[in-house]
Amino acid sequence: MKRNHLKHAVLLGMAIVTLGMYSCKETKKAEAEPTVVSTEEEKTADPFFELSLAQWSMHKMVFDEGVDPYTFAEKAKGWGFSGLEYVSGLYYKELEKSNFSKEAMAAFVEKCNAESEKYGMVNVLIMIDGQGDLASVDAKERKKAVENHYKWVDAAAAMGCHSIRVNLDGSQIPEEWIANSVDGLKQLATYAKDKNVNIIVENHGGLSSNAAMLAEVMKTVNMENCGTLPDFGNFCVKRKGGSYYSGECEEEYDMYQGVSELMPYAKGVSAKSYNFDEAGNETKIDYSKMLQIVKNAGYTSFIGVEYEGDELGEEAGILATKELLLNASKNLE
């Protein structure tokens, strides 16, 4: 009898210990699986946008160092981007030799497609320069400029780009500029519509950098495939000497107000950068403030890095801008 009592006591004790160990494990397991995401985990979440590279960021490499512009996809991939924003002017040395013949344009498309496919990159858009003034006060010149852009619409369509970026120079008289811009854009967007290509305008000097006026142009055009490419910089409306792109700025539009006014029509966003402080922040542009504006607008597509500084080399500037974008995106509401 004593042995049986002892045996029962031992078994009971083992059961209690086992139950206690099981309960402890369950408690620890529950404690190790919190349902609330920590602040640190939130900060390491993916950004709300995708990263593309504006090819202008490497224009010095191409023009001054002789880097082949067709290495764009390879370099952008190596720098950590997934999208490509081409610049037409970087290929003009080759294309102008044949006066932009169909054969030359086809070769351009074929080479770009082969490289982007090889490196698994997305062709996002083409920035077009030097093809005439779409906002010219002369109707014939305006029409000629529109037709000059047709080949780039065709190229964009063949490359799977969603847009071409165009410029609106034209008159410095607001009423004339708005009317002529609307006419030029409507003509070009009508051609591009059936090819599923957007015609987008960047704030890029002159009255195009007056965001309220550019927004008025978009509202008046009122076409689904006509929109904007808000640039964090490029809000100089008037420069000394009358140039659109160079010289000291005399009149500058508020950049944060400008991006806010252009975002309702945005088909893309350009993260312009110039120089950086020791903490890696842009010295002129508050990236957190800009990105909050972009996020609040509901934009989730590509943001293109466009470095134009003179203190860092192009590669270093590109990487610094990319890092700033990613860091700033972690602290948004």
Rank of each mutant, 00 (worst) to 15 (best):
K2F: 15
V10E: 11
V17A: 10
S23G: 12
T27L: 02
T27W: 03
P34W: 00
V36N: 02
S38W: 03
S38M: 03
E41F: 03
P47T: 08
E50A: 08
S52A: 12
L53H: 13
S57A: 07
V87C: 13
Y91H: 10
S98H: 05
A104S: 15
M105C: 04
C112S: 12
A114E: 15
V124W: 01
G130D: 08
V137H: 11
A139W: 01
K140D: 15
K140N: 15
K143F: 12
Y150L: 04
A155D: 14
A157T: 11
C161Q: 05
G170W: 04
G170F: 06
Q172S: 14
I173W: 12
I173N: 14
A179Y: 07
L185S: 08
T190Y: 05
Y191W: 09
I199C: 06
I200T: 14
E202L: 01
E202V: 01
S208W: 03
L214A: 08
A215M: 03
A215Y: 04
E216D: 14
G227I: 00
T228P: 12
D231G: 09
D231Y: 06
G233W: 02
N234G: 07
K240S: 12
Y245V: 05
G247Y: 05
E250S: 03
Y253D: 11
M255I: 13
Q257E: 10
S260I: 00
G268M: 01
G268T: 06
E278Q: 09
N281C: 07
E282C: 12
E282D: 15
I285R: 08
T300Q: 11
E308D: 09
D310L: 02
L319C: 07
A320F: 01
K322L: 07
N327K: 15
K330A: 13
